[in-house]
Amino acid sequence: MSFHRSRTARTKAGALLASAAALLSAGLLHPAPATAATTPSGHAQAHATAAVLDLDGTGRTPVVHGEDRAYDTASIVKVDILAALLLQAQDAGRQLTARERERAEPMIRRSDNAAANALWRQIGGASGLAAANKRLGLTSTKGGPGAKWGLTRTTASDQIRLLRAVFDTGGTVRRGAGGLDAHSRAYLRTLMGQVVAEQRWGVSAAGATGSRQALKNGWLQRNTTGLWDVNSVGEITVRGHRHLVAVLTNGSASMGDGVALVERTARAAVA
């Protein structure tokens, strides 16, 4: 391994450790128990599903790789939370307030959990999310219980529906009905394009080098098993075409293993 590659690996590993430490300090990450669910070979039972839609192609149906099962969202639900907030603001005929932006922007760019807690309450929790998702065309997403937005359940194909609501052209929009208007879509796209450097792993690994990417990642260690949910959703550019990509995984033995699984799955799905 070259010095450059080893330095890059150390930098990435440090960023993952910092992300995990932040979750631990927030009380959302639990130390792994002494044992974890394993296969007979001793490896964690990790699963992955990917969905891909070429926005510049002729098809409108995503290609799904793997079983389109339900996974915990972890922090990718923050895109959905902000979409719900934007719809509520549209219905009220207003822009987001300064306070709402002060929460929305770190929630997406830095995956700030305190901001997500506040906005989850503001949109009405799972019921508010469900109302927004009905308008956005999601059919297989269920909000987490109580304050546990990270335990929202979703599928890869539903995440493509959400990404289309953000990155595709909007349909008919009117107060109390329809999807995100042009201003709301642009706001969400901008924030997803400004995710901090240490959180730019994931579906971005399948994009063209140097191309613009917009994404949101999520990671959560389950306290019942010690295994990790690691997810990534966003828009990347491949061979000159914009692609929406959603990769959902669970059962990884570590966050690093989960990130590697997400990136490997994204590359294979796009290829």
Rank of each mutant, 00 (worst) to 15 (best):
S2M: 06
F3I: 08
H4K: 15
S6D: 12
R7L: 14
R10C: 07
K12M: 11
G14T: 10
A15S: 13
A18N: 14
A21Y: 07
L24Q: 13
A26W: 11
G27E: 07
L28I: 10
L28R: 13
L28H: 13
L29R: 15
H30I: 08
A32P: 11
T35C: 11
T35I: 09
T35S: 15
A36V: 12
A36T: 11
A37K: 13
A37I: 12
T38C: 14
P40S: 08
P40C: 01
S41M: 14
H43E: 12
H43T: 11
A44C: 10
A44V: 05
A44Y: 08
Q45W: 05
A48H: 01
A50V: 07
V52E: 07
L53F: 02
D56I: 02
P62E: 04
V63R: 15
V64F: 06
H65Q: 14
H65C: 09
E67Y: 10
D68S: 07
R69N: 03
Y71G: 00
A74C: 07
S75C: 05
S75N: 05
V77S: 01
V77W: 01
K78R: 00
V79S: 05
I81W: 03
L82A: 09
A83P: 01
A83E: 02
L85I: 07
Q90Y: 09
Q95F: 10
T97Y: 07
T97K: 09
E102Y: 01
E105G: 06
E105T: 05
R110Q: 15
A115D: 08
A115K: 00
R121G: 13
G128W: 03
L138C: 11
K142T: 15
G144C: 04
P145C: 03
G146L: 02
A147H: 11
A147R: 14
K148D: 14
T154K: 06
A156S: 02
S157D: 10
A165P: 02
V166N: 04
T172M: 12
V173Q: 06
G176V: 00
A177E: 15
G179Q: 04
L180F: 04
H183Q: 14
S184Q: 10
R185Q: 04
A186M: 06
A186G: 09
T190F: 09
L191K: 00
G193K: 00
E198A: 15
R200L: 02
W201R: 10
S204K: 12
A206E: 05
G207N: 06
G207D: 03
A208N: 12
G210M: 00
S211W: 02
A214R: 06
L220D: 00
Q221L: 13
R222M: 11
D229Q: 09
D229Y: 07
D229S: 12
G234I: 03
G234E: 00
E235H: 08
E235I: 08
T237C: 04
R239T: 11
R239G: 14
H241Q: 08
R242N: 07
R242G: 01
G251N: 02
M255A: 12
D257Q: 15
G258I: 04
A260N: 13
V262M: 03
E263D: 05
T265S: 09
R267H: 10
V270W: 03
V270D: 00
A271F: 05
